[in-house]
Design a protein around this nucleic acid. Structure first.
Lengths: 230, 230
DNA sequence: ATTACTAAGACACGAGTAT
DNA sequence: TATACTCGTGTCTTAGTAA
């Protein structure tokens, strides 16, 4: 049987006030104020915690002396360890972009082909001739895009061919749906509005991952120092 | 306005499933199972979180894509940091004893006076001529007393005066009610049962802290290496 | 002063169901 | 399939008050 949120918060409040390590003298009125409930409710919360073996209570003249039991401490520890994983194991600076697959203009393939060798040299893979267009979902993800764009990019230098000028292309390594290493490419003079990203990968992503228009995808930006440029 | 326990737990559950760092595709049924509530309630919980700006929601064909907002992350962080203090700042090996002030036999003052200079040398303060007797509250605290007694003590050496032998006195530095530095003294041949502790301090504790018989006190044992023996 | 019981009211839950 | 509405039911809260 799981602990109820109210009970957990009661333990938490008591622990913050010192009842984790020692007995803490406290009135139900005080506790009620901390928890934002009435004195009566606070009283019942404490009784519930005592009944379930989370808290040790001794009645005294000026209130109660409360102290968490091992079991109560265990409940806090479980949450603490879960939060520890959330806050520390997963890097704080992880940049994740959520988006939806959209139909491209079809001109991507042409350019990817022209830059193919240069991409291969810079990214370590020969790109599939075509781009996956991903529309950025929401503000949160748009922020992530901005974060990505302010991180150090891989630059594929432009060149001149047949008298025509091809500009630099900015690349960011990403992992698509936690499965395939790919790259966001941003041409100097892009025809897209800024909320659509173009992705290239060593394989045909639509086939490989079964992505149709409207499919949700996750892009995790891979910091340059972690990328294996082969 | 404070976050409700249910809402916090919702954020917590979402964060554990990955919605802290990225959008997480999830159905209300799934979330309901995790939280131990119905699909309908889970739906309402999410809506509440969205309404209050804790969670970003995008509806998709196979459920919702949920992601904590900065505000939502902030709520988790607050709790995380509080737990961090509880679990790490306060040393795990902190020894705390809970007790009640009891009437002494009155002979304490006599002995304290005789040992006064020796206490001053060992403890760094000249003790008020009298002892505060504290009855140990419960098993938890009795365990703490045992822990204290197995930690390195300060020994005030005995002596011979007027042909009479005064034995060694074992001392442990303690902080009383987190306010006044004092010491537990244990005579070699004590008349007390082992659940009563004698406390000396530079001041009259009964007056200074307004302690009457029956008052609850907390003794925090100060490890020797942390004590300032002046 | 406290804690905590009782009872009435508020609010949350979940079944059914619309979308 | 989803999400999320309405609404009857039941649980939780709080005011009053006893102990």
């Amino acid at each position: 049987m799981m602990i109820s949120p109210e009970m957990w918060f009661t333990l938490f409040a008591l622990a913050r006030k010192g009842a984790f390590h020692r007995g803490k003298v406290m009135t139900t009125r005080e506790l009620g104020e901390i928890l934002g409930v009435s004195q009566q409710t606070a009283s019942r919360r404490v009784t519930d915690c005592v009944d379930r073996g989370y808290v040790n209570r001794i009645h005294s003249s000026s209130g109660m002396i409360l102290r968490l039991t091992d079991r109560g401490r265990e409940e806090l520890r479980t949450v603490y360890e879960a939060l520890e994983i959330i806050f520390t194991l997963h890097a704080e600076d992880m940049i994740v972009i959520e988006g939806t697959v959209t139909r491209g203009l079809g001109e991507g393939a042409y350019y990817v082909d022209i830059y193919a060798e240069r991409f291969e040299k810079a990214l370590g893979f020969r790109p599939f001739p075509g781009t996956l267009n991903v529309k950025v979902n929401d503000d949160e993800s748009q922020k992530s895009v901005n974060a990505m764009r302010s991180s150090p990019p891989l630059i594929v230098s432009g060149f001149v061919s047949d008298g025509r000028t091809f500009g630099d292309v900015t690349c960011y390594r990403v992992r698509l749906n936690d499965q395939i290493d790919a790259a966001v490419i941003i041409a100097q003079r892009t025809h897209h509005s800024s909320d659509i990203l173009e992705i290239i990968a060593p394989v045909n992503l639509r086939d490989e991952l079964g992505l149709d228009d409207g499919a949700d995808v996750t892009l995790t930006v891979i910091p340059l120092h972690k990328a294996t440029t082969s």
